[in-house]
């Protein structure tokens, strides 16, 4: 659907050149909700804006549905852009038009007749749940409502692709969830491929099936959302995960573990990572029975990513004659990530 090869973007200014994108390769399949995550300045927005050529790439290729974007004439580009919707962090609605007028805007540009426009706008406002706000102006709407208008407007010309540039970054957590849900519904209902740029891991977790992590103008890691969440390879990915999961043990707990380690003759404090089906099994009680150890859960967290459970537990095992160690190796054998927490 979208094929990006060796994409490079260099900004030249009086003070020198800055490489915003450096040899990016991405493949986005039809129907994907593809997340691009990175810190500010990593180049993720530039990458998104290269897809519809709001930024002109310095070199490389962007193919959408087999059409090479970088080789289009201005006229062809205008036609192509009508099939690529875009929503923005700050909504970018026309303050001079009502909600209705804003949604009608792309249709006017595309040259639809009045009757078609009326029908389409009505359907779109229904889809985003804003039929009762048709006559309101953007200034009279909340952030979430504004983004709904933005989404309706982006969908007006039946796009094949929807580009989302930090679309929820200006919204509160609750509104973010409702907007993400709407996007996911649209993806399922209309089969539109989405490219979602964000700095929030939560957004990725909620809707994306694939992710690329961008750091310093390069893609440093990519894969399915589950892969990135369960086995992050780079520190950047881990840092993003940290922002939402307790992958790191909090300071207060560390002090407590240190005290415990000092007192434990034959015990271990371990961090266990659970992924997938194994979370549903009563592993801890199994280990307790099998090896006769005591298990004390110090800290824990279980979440759900794209339908797959995912969690971390910090557990203190106590047992005599090496039973604790045997329990640990058993846990490793059955496929858990076990890491002995050594502090101090």
């Amino acid at each position: 659907m979208i094929r990006i090869r060796n994409l490079t973007k260099v900004y030249t200014s009086a003070s020198g050149t800055v490489k915003a994108l450096d040899g990016i390769n991405l493949d986005i399949e039809k129907g994907d909700i593809f997340g691009i995550i990175g810190l500010s300045g990593a180049g993720k927005s530039t990458l998104l804006r290269c897809i519809n050529l709001l930024e002109k790439p310095t070199s490389g290729s962007i193919e959408i549905d087999g059409v090479e974007m970088t080789g289009l004439s201005p006229k062809e580009l205008k036609e192509m852009r009508k099939k690529i919707g875009m929503i923005f962090q700050h909504f970018n609605l026309l303050s001079s038009r009502t909600v209705w007028g804003n949604v009608a805007f792309p249709l006017e540009i595309a040259g639809f007749d009045r009757k078609t426009i009326n029908e389409k706008v009505e359907n779109l406002l229904n889809l985003v749940g804003l039929s009762d706000k048709a006559r309101s102006f953007p200034s009279q709407l909340s952030g979430g409502q504004k983004q709904r208008v933005g989404i309706a407007r982006a969908l007006a010309c039946d796009p094949k692709v929807l580009l989302c540039d930090e679309a929820t970054s200006a919204l509160d957590p609750e509104t973010t969830l409702s907007i993400l849900k709407l996007l996911k519904d649209i993806n399922e209902k209309l089969g539109i491929t989405m490219v979602v740029v964000t700095h929030e891991m939560n957004v990725i977790k909620q809707i994306c099936n694939k992710v690329a992590v961008i750091e310093k103008s390069r893609v440093v890691e990519q894969g399915t959302t589950f892969e990135i969440f369960s086995r992050p390879k780079t520190q950047t990915a881990r840092n993003f995960l940290k922002s939402m999961f307790i992958c790191e043990i909090p300071e207060e707990l560390k002090a407590k573990i240190k005290a415990l380690n000092g007192n434990l003759a034959e015990g271990r404090v371990v961090k266990i990572g659970f992924f997938g089906e194994i979370t549903a099994k009563p592993i801890l009680s199994e280990v307790v029975k099998k090896f006769g150890v005591n298990a004390n859960i110090l800290y824990g967290n279980i979440d759900n990513i794209q339908g797959t459970p995912f969690g971390t537990l910090v557990v203190q095992f106590e047992g005599k004659n090496g039973t604790a160690d045997r329990a640990l190796s058993y846990l490793q054998d059955i496929g858990l990530d076990v890491e002995v927490v050594e502090i101090g």
């Binding site: 709001l54 852009r81 009508k82 923005f88 970018n92 805007f105 792309p106």
Partner: peptide, 11 residues
Amino acid sequence: GVIEAAQAMGA
């Protein structure tokens, strides 16, 4: 941003 949005729509 508003101008950009219009350009992104093919205006």
